[in-house]
Amino acid sequence: MIVVFGVVLYPMGRTLVLSLVDATSALQTEFTFSGLSNYTALLSNSEFWATVWRTAVFTVFSTAVELVVGLLLAQFLNQRIRGQWFFRSLVVLAWALPTIVSANMWRWILHPEYGALNGLLMHLGLLDSYKDWIGGPTQALFVVALVDAWKTTPLVAILLLASMQTIGDDVYEAAAMDGAGAVRRFLSITIPMLKPAIAVVLVLRTIEAFKVFDIIYIMTRGGPDSGTTTIAFYTYLQAFSNQEFSLGSAAAYLTVLFIFVLSLVYLRMLRTDSGGTA
């Protein structure tokens, strides 16, 4: 309990208080109560809303890719094939890498001058000159979201696989005897029975993706043209680069609020799916 208080509750409380004063230095000793002015300053700032929009795009795209690819991957890993353990280990590898390692790796793979991807595509004759994969702001946001999806899809796949393995073979056999093909069985049996697991994955990944920071810090530092400045990166810039600790704290609390609302929506979905008993 003491640990939870020390690493969760106290920092949360302190951040809340900071968001209500005028802290502009790490060594400040006197503070003036400023009410909700930091919140209103953010909510009336178009730049802040641009970061919210970018974060939403990042979250939806990255989570959607993770869910679709993760589902297909889980289906593949659920097959009785030779060397199944090898494929499962291989899939987990990407997720097991620390984010700082995978982000740096992708930064170099995508590097406009020395990137391995450019080298490979040139070698295969698919490119005639090096391409800047994160050259434009929108392009960069989607590429970074794909890197996030690459990193996290294995987790999604493993979670869905665990749930998939609880579906009995007899259900599929009965459907097959009724003439249902593989696609029909997947759509009519697998997907509906995975709904609770999918809902859990959606909640977890949406929250995580909404808070994305490390991949952006390493790969793009918010650029180009602010195209990857998400709400977490914006919060970091305000709090630590600019020493606008109060503004940063308010941005952090608004992030919590957004995530809270999203979580409520998902919980509502969960409740509906389980007949109001969840």
């Binding site: 003491i2 106290y10 949360m12 409380g13 208080v17 003036t32």
Partner: peptide, 22 residues
């Protein structure tokens, strides 16, 4: 506007959380 000292600022979250634990 109220002026708040650093000491009070630091203690506020404590009150908000669980008084005097840390």
């Amino acid at each position: 506007m109220h002026s708040i000292s650093r000491r009070r600022l630091l203690s506020l979250p404590l009150v908000l959380g669980a008084a005097a634990v840390l």
